[in-house]
Design a binder for these strands. Structure first.
Lengths: 379, 379
DNA sequence: CTGAAAGCGCTTACAG
DNA sequence: CTGAAAGCGCTTACAG
């Protein structure tokens, strides 16, 4: 795992034409290159007029600082690796954008990579980043990442901050309190009168899914509501998974009247399949998602969802990493375990249902596009 | 513009602990570091058993190749810059993923950056990439990028490939034939019987919007359909823009019965606002988008849209850049101007309308959630 | 306040 | 087939 296989060097390469160096500036300004270097670093040790002369020469020559050379000589690095498991999920895009912004403000360059949930791709990408000499790493690990990955990274001598997907209490982690969030979401549905509530997006052996299911179960439990095994539906964490969950729900009897979805992607599939069946989310089935991606506001109907605050989380993750980079070996702080409390953003997808047992076919059904068919599916 | 202001060096930096070098491997294997270097490059000049001995020593020491040092000495670069204007648009995410995949296969590392349509951010990011010594650049320029940007980049001595947003015939460009695509989309609506068709997402002085509007206009023209000025609606290229466009359309009389949207993001807003008004896209207003992002398949109703093929475009863009990197100054090929022909993916949002003048309020209206209100809006 | 010298970890002619 | 030497563009003690 993550072994350094240095024999996969690139075949294609590009020759550079080189511009002026600090040597050229030194010659033009009539100083030594030491002086030029110090001016570029804004050292107070250089007299103001000398500095100005150097800057002027640099400008005249069209000088471009070579950060690679500086990093090599200075034995430091100003690039941060950032590995994301799923850029097709807009939540991670928002997270990435926030992280990049904060790091750029501190003068770091972000080397981004996308693993598409493939552990193999992740291994390749990490190896490449290591060769690129990253100063630190922020990552949201792909599903199925081996447990020893954080140890492996630590052995590289660089700090690691995990986002969204915890891998143990001893590694810096920034995420959300999933259990509490899903408790909130489930209680919201209970408050709307629902008693049969499904959970769509269970995935075995997957930490985040476990946390979210746990939150759902503890809310049900707290309110004395029994949970049937079949309500906990294991589907892909994608819109397609959501569509399959709806089909499963409408095959159950008595069927759940509400569903808590693993995330917004799953919820989008749920909304879509309901629409395809001529039903309306909120009326026919109350739906709650998680992530509050931008599109959740624009779905039909708009989606009730847990807001994790991608911007805040990204900022926290960056700051945590920057703090580690500032530490010396002696003053290491204990692991950061930051889990934000999500808020529930209530929209139309979870409200307006008539759930008080009486109406097998409620008022809402009159507006369904194909009542005959939905009755058939209800049996 | 894009001036090299080298005095913005980072404040925060990170010291590296250094691992074994080729020197250490050389000592361990009892050879010179030249030999080690050649082995790492898989040079056929080294005897197989010597090579194996070296590899074994490297493995034993846990050696990590330092690409930065190699690039410095070899006067080359193996990183490619990739600047994207809008990662919140899933189309660009798909494009980015495809580009990264192809570049990684050729041994290049991708330095990604996001400008959020800000020319200022773009300037900062380009400067940083230049200091990072990128071998080439693939970019989708932010709106309002100055016309001389390609010239500026070229003066850096690195190849530039533009994606999606052309900036002149002399710079390598990979995009789509927007005019032809929008002609297709508009003709599809005409084929459905529509005669009053709006265009949502016109933006003045913006090349891509001009091309798309042109395609729309030429289709209308070709079929002898007059176009009212008010039908060409200037809105933000976001879901919010789409919502505003719908409001504008329903204030017109006689109102358009169909709308061609600048892209899927705008179309999503259109679908959403229609739903909010208790209307159904397809029935009340035929809607076509552009980009065929993954979510277009899952909207309510599913969105008819132009498929540009993000994967194909990303592959083309990467290959174009890789080819330039292989060129020597002598054998430079003429500029690549590749514009893919988009295909129209027909889904529910554009079909099923009754448009033959008779029904001011058609059968579909009976299923609208708030008929009184929609009649009021129609006047 | 400034300069001379050493060196970061590699690659590449060149010589043998 | 392998090694000695020079050098990529910087930074950093150290000396003055």
């Amino acid at each position: 795992m993550l072994s350094n296989t240095f024999w996969n060097v690139p075949i294609v390469q590009s020759n550079m034409k080189s511009g002026p160096t600090i040597q050229d500036i030194a010659a033009a300004a009539g100083v030594s290159k030491s002086t030029v270097s110090l001016v570029l670093q804004e050292s107070p040790r250089i007299k103001a007029e000398t500095a100005e002369k150097v800057r002027e020469a640099a400008r005249a020559l069209g000088y471009v600082y070579n950060r690679g050379a500086a990093n090599l000589r200075g034995r430091r690095s100003t690039t941060i690796g950032m590995v994301i498991n799923d850029l097709t999920n807009p939540f991670f895009v928002e997270l990435l954008v926030a992280i990049e912004r904060v790091l750029a403000q501190s003068g770091f360059t972000t080397l981004m990579a996308h693993t598409a949930e493939s552990v193999e791709t992740q291994t390749r990408v990490l190896r490449s980043m290591r060769e690129q000499n990253i100063a630190g790493l922020i990552m949201s690990p792909a599903l199925g990442t081996p447990d020893d990955m954080p140890v492996e990274i630590r052995s590289w001598g660089i700090p690691l901050v995990l986002v969204m997907r915890p891998m143990g209490a001893d590694v810096d982690t920034v995420g959300v309190d999933n259990a509490h969030g899903f408790e909130l979401a489930t209680e919201h549905l209970i408050g709307q009168g629902h008693t049969r509530i499904a959970f769509a997006g269970n995935r075995k052996g997957y930490t985040v899914a476990n946390q979210r299911r746990q939150g759902y179960l503890s809310a049900m439990n707290k309110h004395g509501l029994p949970v049937s095994d079949e309500w906990i539906i294991d589907v892909e964490l994608t819109p397609t998974g959501g569509r399959n969950a709806v089909r499963a729900i409408f095959d159950m009897k008595p069927r759940p009247t509400a569903v808590v979805c693993y995330n917004d992607q799953v919820a989008f599939g749920v909304l879509h399949e309901l629409d395809r069946m001529g039903k309306r989310a909120g009326k026919a089935l109350a739906v709650v998602g998680c992530d509050n991606v931008v599109a959740a506001e624009h779905t039909n109907p708009p989606l009730t969802t847990l807001s994790a605050g991608a911007d805040t989380l990204g900022t926290m993750a960056s700051r945590t990493l920057l703090a580690r980079l500032d530490e010396t070996d002696g003053d290491a702080k204990p692991p950061v375990q930051y889990f934000a409390e999500p808020e529930l953003v209530v929209r139309e997808s979870s409200i307006g249902a008539a759930v008080h047992e009486r109406p097998r076919i409620d008022a809402g059904a009159l507006r369904e596009r194909d009542p005959a068919r939905s009755i058939a599916r209800l049996k």
